[in-house]
Design a protein around this nucleic acid. Structure first.
Length: 283
DNA sequence: CACTTGACCTGTCCGC
DNA sequence: TGCGGACAGGTCAAGT
């Protein structure tokens, strides 16, 4: 499901609700979804919530954190009947019964309940010692987010890569946070054909791509992420985002290009991922 | 080393 | 109606 804007949306919502909460009990319904010993986190208090790219970090007191990756279909949903907590309103009208058949882990808090749902079971929640992530594989291997780069640094990354630009944008080791939706839309913003090799863009295309990536990510954040028709992405309160109403090319095969009356959005496969572009204006 | 392909899972949709 | 295959917002490991 989620790329940087979706995780950022959930991170902001978690930060309103979780700090100060105590994890009384952890219920693991699918062993594969939870890595580590739940006893290490039971009884501990949430002190903060952080995000790097698509990875979420829930910081607990006494030296332990929870790292969460949503992969394609992960969801975090917070339910609390006690409305004294900000944002803690129940949202069962939107998400249906909880736990659902896709609920993999349940965090019983001192106030409210946090559900981790994940249809495809690719996602994971991992107990880590504080600071461990930063020297450990996944976090360490993440490249900088687009927001952390200036234009020159951005160009320097791509000008030496020989793979299609869209795949390079999605390589988390090179640059982190961009997934399939925003990579497609960023290429459209820059009028770049997603198949063009990353080292072959014009100076102007690199510049346009840099600003295009930042533009679509910021718009994704502004609209609370993208919830396509299958509604796999929902926020902490079970609500969908609205970036899908602003898709440039993603999921728009056969539709008219937004800036070119002669352009029809085409779809092809790149690296096994659905790739959308306007042949008329993306060169 | 850089790049490509298949695997990991469940569920849905589409063509025959 | 049933069945098979393709596909879905993401990484990983193993191949070339």
């Amino acid at each position: 499901m989620p790329e940087l804007p979706e995780i950022e949306t959930i991170k902001v919502q978690l930060a309103e609700v979780l700090p100060g909460r105590i994890i009384n009990k952890v219920e693991i319904l699918k062993a594969k979804s939870f890595i580590g010993d739940k006893k290490q986190i039971e009884g501990k208090k949430v002190v903060g919530v952080e995000r790097k790219a698509k990875l979420l970090l829930i910081e607990l007191d006494r030296g332990v954190d929870l790292a969460i990756h949503f992969k394609m279909t992960g969801q975090l949903i917070y339910v609390n009947k006690d409305k004294r907590i900000a944002g803690g309103h129940p949202t069962l009208d939107f998400v249906g019964e909880l736990p659902s058949k896709h609920t993999r882990v349940i965090f019983h808090l001192d106030q409210g309940t946090l559900f981790f749902n994940d249809q495809r079971i690719f996602g994971w929640i991992k107990v880590v010692e504080s600071g461990e992530l930063k020297v450990e594989s996944f976090w360490e291997k993440l490249g900088p987010e687009p927001f952390d780069l200036d234009e020159e640094q951005f160009i320097k990354i791509f000008i030496k890569l020989k793979q299609p630009i869209k795949l390079a944008l999605m390589d988390q080791a090179k640059i982190s946070g961009v997934g399939n939706i925003y990579a497609n839309d960023a290429c459209w913003e820059a009028k770049v054909n997603p198949r063009r090799l990353a080292n072959s863009l014009t100076r102007k295309q690199y510049t346009d791509l840099y600003f295009g990536v930042i533009k679509v990510l910021n718009e994704g954040i502004k609209f609370g992420g993208a919830t396509a028709a299958d509604a796999k992405y929902i926020d902490l309160h079970g609500l969908g985002g609205h970036y899908q109403d602003h898709f440039r090319v993603y999921d728009r095969e056969g539709e008219m290009c937004l800036r070119n009356d002669d352009g029809i959005i085409h779809k092809l496969s790149l690296g096994g991922r659905g790739t959308y572009f306007c042949p008329a204006c993306q060169r």
